[in-house]
Design a protein around this nucleic acid. Structure first.
Lengths: 199, 199, 199, 199
DNA sequence: AATGAATGAGAGTTCATTCAT
DNA sequence: TATGAATGAACTCTCATTCAT
């Protein structure tokens, strides 16, 4: 059972182009990358890139969309599932941090280069991703209501904190391939849940 | 009590130039900024920038050094002080996060653009900043030994977590001037210390 | 009998670019010429030059190599030939001085601008050209041994003298198109052989 | 008995500036030199140069004039003297070639950079120097008439040849301080007079 | 007599983009 | 489907020159 669309040759090649762009942008930043860099990584000539993107900016948009793929759905699945808070948190962090090791760095690009897009396009991406934060926040809301979390918890703040922490670790593990991904995830979830202090 | 060095006119103007560069780099990224942008912000002509920096790259180095100024010393003072762990953590977070609202964004530039410097210069900056992490780690080591923190705590991990969290919040508060800095600091310290979970 | 290689369009255009650079450098000197000057002479826009040379310096190198083409081989052919000394000298001078009227001044550029190349590249060119002097010197050595030339002749000095004289006349005939090339060559060979003095 | 004018301090300093310019132009060429290079060699700041020259071009003119100083007079003295041809030739060559080791390379600058001056100024310099060639030519004319030289000698050509040869050797000895100046002069005069061929 | 500070013009170079083939 | 060739705009950087001090 194929999980991705059969995909015409063009779509396949375009997908490769997006992944090449992701890798190059992740490495050198959007403004530090040239279309030639991307083309070289793809093994084609500079001009040929324009068969797949109508501009460099479009390439960035596509990389960001690629990064967002399955991102929100994942969160929705976690929210809908019938697990205790700590399991949901672990699942969230796993999903988020792992993404930094996948998709040729697209997630990193989304996080750091998205801002260079013109307002309009940035807004569209933002809307795409904001469901994520909302869903995550409801996990916190529910858990507080249910008595699992501190009753004084600022759920909005906690949500940002989780996301920010995931992004921070994501950067680190994207840069250093020697870091043990699951060790990071476990400790991260533990510390966020329980804090540094001895009980 | 003089708060700043007397400083020659040249030094003063150069300082202004560094701050202008910091602001522009923070806004558009190193590669996305032009020397004209910086000059314009300073109110001089493009070519005149080279009276203060011998290259755009040198400007980036200076911005990073500016960001690092007092940074490690602050940490050393906190380490040396005779306060309980939670006070030290609060002081650390305050010092770190506040920096993102100071110095025209130099701290953000240091964090996100430093990587575009050639190996040699990056290394030198790195050495300057690495004392920070070490000092912070000793705070954790001491507190674990003293019984204030969980005995199973991975202090190295915890250190990275604090720094990463501070940087993540730093980005947010730098971008959004409406965020209440001290609210963030307080909640951040609280959550890191005590976690989300109800005791 | 094909006299030039078939040559791809790119090679042909690049050749034109080298000749344009030769002409401009010969006229205004390397540092006095701009890439725009060269491009204009070629009838393309400045930026397009970089499709043919990756830097202005590379253009200078190519012009120098162009000047050296066939230069040493010519000398080798003369050396190997079975002619008396005076014929060989005449052939040498002819070959050398004529070059100043050919190849759009590349020889002049080689002679006067080569020095502005960085050590490494200059060295490589030098090695290419140094065979010339050596071959010429053997002509003198042989002729002295054979009794055609004065037995007290400093052959190394004589070689330099021929080359220097050729270059001096080359400059003159390159600058003034009215000078009769073959008149110069003949008189030059005569005077070098026989001197000013009446016998 | 002072041989140069008493000279105001200004004149002395200006003289130093001309010599500094000569050295720098000789080393890097007119277009390859910056006014900062010259100022640095003088030990003053760039802007201060303009106290001595109203433009870089004027500096070049002054260097050329400096090179020409005593040049023609020397030739006149030689012409007027009552020596045989060979002594006059030797004196001429000595005077000319030696100049390349004097005056900080001004002669080399005159020879190679003069052409970059605008027509008008070049013309003026040319007139200054052309007396030299004329005087030298009369030496040849006289010697032919007197029967010392070959009756078929093209005196104009011979004159150019002497000058060209002197300049060629001048370049060599200016570049390489190890060359024995008087050895060059002697051999040069000998070969020009008597040629390579065995009598 | 000399300098610090600035400038405007122009340099070499890169690059996103186009388009005929 | 992809390329070779070119372009024009922008970029970093240099430099001759000016001028108040």
């Amino acid at each position: 059972m194929a999980m991705t669309q059969p995909a015409s040759t063009y779509e396949q090649h375009r997908h490769d182009a997006i992944r090449a762009a992701a890798a190059v942008f992740a490495d050198k930043g959007y403004h530090g990358s040239s279309t030639r860099d991307i083309a070289e990584r793809l093994g084609i000539k500079q001009g040929s890139l324009y068969y797949y993107f109508k501009s460099k900016e479009e390439a960035l948009v596509e990389v960001c969309l690629y990064a967002m793929r399955d991102y929100v759905q994942h969160m929705e699945a976690i929210t809908a599932s019938d697990q205790p808070f700590e399991a949901k948190l672990l699942a969230t962090i796993t999903s988020h941090v792992s993404k930094y090791r996948e998709q040729n760095g697209a997630m990193k690009v989304y996080h750091t280069e998205r801002l260079y897009l013109p307002e309009a396009k940035r807004e569209k991406l933002y809307r795409l991703g904001s469901g994520y934060r909302q869903k995550l926040e409801t996990i916190f809301d529910d858990a507080v209501r249910h008595g699992d979390l501190r009753p004084d918890l600022d759920c909005h703040f906690a949500t940002q904190m989780v996301i920010g922490t995931c992004n921070a670790w994501g950067e680190l593990i994207a840069r250093d391939p020697d870091i043990d991904l699951f060790d990071v995830i476990r400790k991260c979830a533990d510390l966020l849940s329980n804090g540094f202090i001895r009980k």
